[in-house]
């Protein structure tokens, strides 16, 4: 039989993966909004966070998680100042290729650091107890799934409040819509960019903490495949709006989780093929994005 039965555990795992991918999609979408830059190196921020968790796994849990957030946010801000800022105003192709270079550079650095003990991979096992199941609604759900969903929902809610209720949020949304006009109105470009990059770093750190629960062995290509899937999800959802990008990320995470659960164990190598076949279908049927309804701007009236 090709398909195993769809059970509660598969469904909840898929939602959990969708939640994590949604957070990555927001992180990528936030930076795209203000810089018009698709940050391919986003996965390497998550990877750096995972390594930090591995190297600090003897520390108290709170300190280890705090270190992860500090390292990832600092790296995210450094990436902006050292690499993206000098490239501002360059063509999107130049910036995209540059983020490839940054991604490979960070992977190479991680490899050098990792191989100091002559074995590839470090273990971040502080939180593996979250893989234990709990009973809920008569079914079994792993704790990490509940944590992922709660963290994603909380983070998205906070972000929505931050973007709609605060001045810096208003400025960031304006910069994402029309950067030149926003600057003409006095919106400080460097401030909204730093704000977006900071938030995007926080999200990458949260993703690193949750991902290491399920994949405690951290290698230089940690989160690389996930980033590619999320980038595809962001494009499929519609990259020019934060919420469609987020839904796109969630959808691909959910679909991956579902197909992974439905495929028999010896057939899971077909997972990427199945996911990307779906993506091609979506791009053929809804090229503007799965969730793009109507135009971006209202028609100009006289």
């Amino acid at each position: 039989m090709l398909l195993a039965t769809l059970d509660f555990q598969t469904l909840s795992d898929a939602v959990g993966l969708g939640a994590i991918y949604a957070l990555m999609a927001v992180g990528i979408g936030l930076v795209f909004g203000v810089l018009r830059l698709v940050n391919f190196a986003y996965g390497q921020l998550v990877m750096a966070g995972a390594y930090t968790l591995a190297f600090t796994s003897t520390w108290p849990l709170w300190a280890s998680i705090a270190a992860c957030f500090v390292v990832v946010v600092a790296l995210s801000l450094a990436m902006e100042t050292v690499v993206f800022r000098p490239l501002r105003g360059q063509s999107p192709a130049v910036m995209l290729v540059t983020t490839f270079a940054v991604a490979f550079l960070l992977q190479a650095i991680a490899l050098i650091i990792d191989l100091r003990d002559d074995t590839l991979g470090e273990v971040a096992a502080s939180l593996t107890s979250l893989n234990e199941p709990v009973s809920i609604f008569g079914g079994e759900v792993r704790k990490i799934t509940l944590v992922s969903i709660a963290v994603a929902a909380g983070a998205l809610l906070l972000l929505a409040l931050l973007l709609t209720r605060t001045t810096i949020g208003l400025h960031t949304r304006a910069a994402a819509g029309d950067f030149r006009t926003a600057r003409l109105l006095g919106v400080r470009a460097n401030r909204v960019i730093a704000f977006s990059v900071f938030l995007s770093g926080l999200l990458a750190a949260a993703v690193a903490v949750m991902m290491t629960v399920q994949l405690p062995l951290v290698t230089p290509d940690f989160a690389l495949r996930d980033t590619i899937v999320v980038l595809v999800g962001v494009v499929v959802g519609g990259i020019d709006r934060l919420w469609t990008a987020t839904l796109g990320g969630f959808t691909l995470g959910f679909a991956s989780g579902l197909i992974n659960g439905l495929l028999p164990t010896d057939k899971t190598v077909y997972l990427p093929s199945a996911v990307f076949a779906l993506v091609i279908l979506v791009l053929l049927l809804r090229p503007a994005g799965l969730f793009a309804w109507g135009g971006r701007t209202a028609p100009e009236r006289v």
Partner: peptide, 15 residues
């Protein structure tokens, strides 16, 4: 900014 409310557009001017 078409997608913003009138008040949000005005608040942007305060920048």
């Amino acid at each position: 900014f078409y997608e913003f409310t009138v008040e949000e557009n005005l608040r942007l001017g305060l920048a």
